[in-house]
Design a protein around this nucleic acid. Sequence first.
DNA 1: CAGTATCCACAAGGATACTG
DNA 2: CAGTATCCTTGTGGATACTG
Lengths: 129, 129
Amino acid sequence: MSHSATLPEDACLAAWCAGDEWCAITCTMDVIENKWHPVIVDRLLAQGPLHFNQLADEIGPITNKVLSNSLQNLEESGLVDRTIVNDQPVEVEYALTDRGRSLEPVIDALAAWGREHLGTADDGTAVRY
Amino acid sequence: MSHSATLPEDACLAAWCAGDEWCAITCTMDVIENKWHPVIVDRLLAQGPLHFNQLADEIGPITNKVLSNSLQNLEESGLVDRTIVNDQPVEVEYALTDRGRSLEPVIDALAAWGREHLGTADDGTAVRY
DNA sequence: CAGTATCCACAAGGATACTG
DNA sequence: CAGTATCCTTGTGGATACTG
């Protein structure tokens, strides 16, 4: 299932069509720049399909509303599929699409850089190298 | 020159110290999540050190204020060095630090994904695949 | 279980104009 | 050339409470 959506007012895409280079990056950022988007994709990459509350537990400090919004955004971007796997009680499964899985190198790069540049100082305080 | 700053109130770093995984990604996002940060780093990677207005021209639609803010953030994060190379007229050069250059794999991944998922439809309109 | 409904605060981005 | 100074709008995240 290929995802295709026209975004008429999107300056980034317009610039891309005009041949500008900078927009390839901002396009990707448009998709993942929300605070939790990359984390959600990361958890789905690592754990496979997850239910709403499983995601909430995996991710850490995220509220219902923000997780819900983020998942809707990811669905609209064609990165995540939402499937109702059971009624009564309602169970919903969130899984990456092929397009979502294609973000793996990006997520890996983000995670690798973060891991290399975070640490603990001698006095026990958190430090950014 | 090693960059090291304590960020006492930073929940991300606190969580890192507590052993949580999600924060490696959010830490990286904290550094580059601003709309133009990754583009600035990309241009400096591709072109080497640049002056203020050179950057503005390279990057595209960015206002003085936003570019100035972004550069200050990048400097505070230890990713960019600001050097005055001339008085009268004032000339300032922005260059990546080692830490800044270490973002290259991240930027490359962002750019590659964007390039693969942007394009032009048959009717000429911009399309996101 | 999987959300929605409000409300609030803050920060980032953009437009515009001005300066040493 | 390399910025700063305002002002404004919007979006995003967080807190809290409620629901089918």
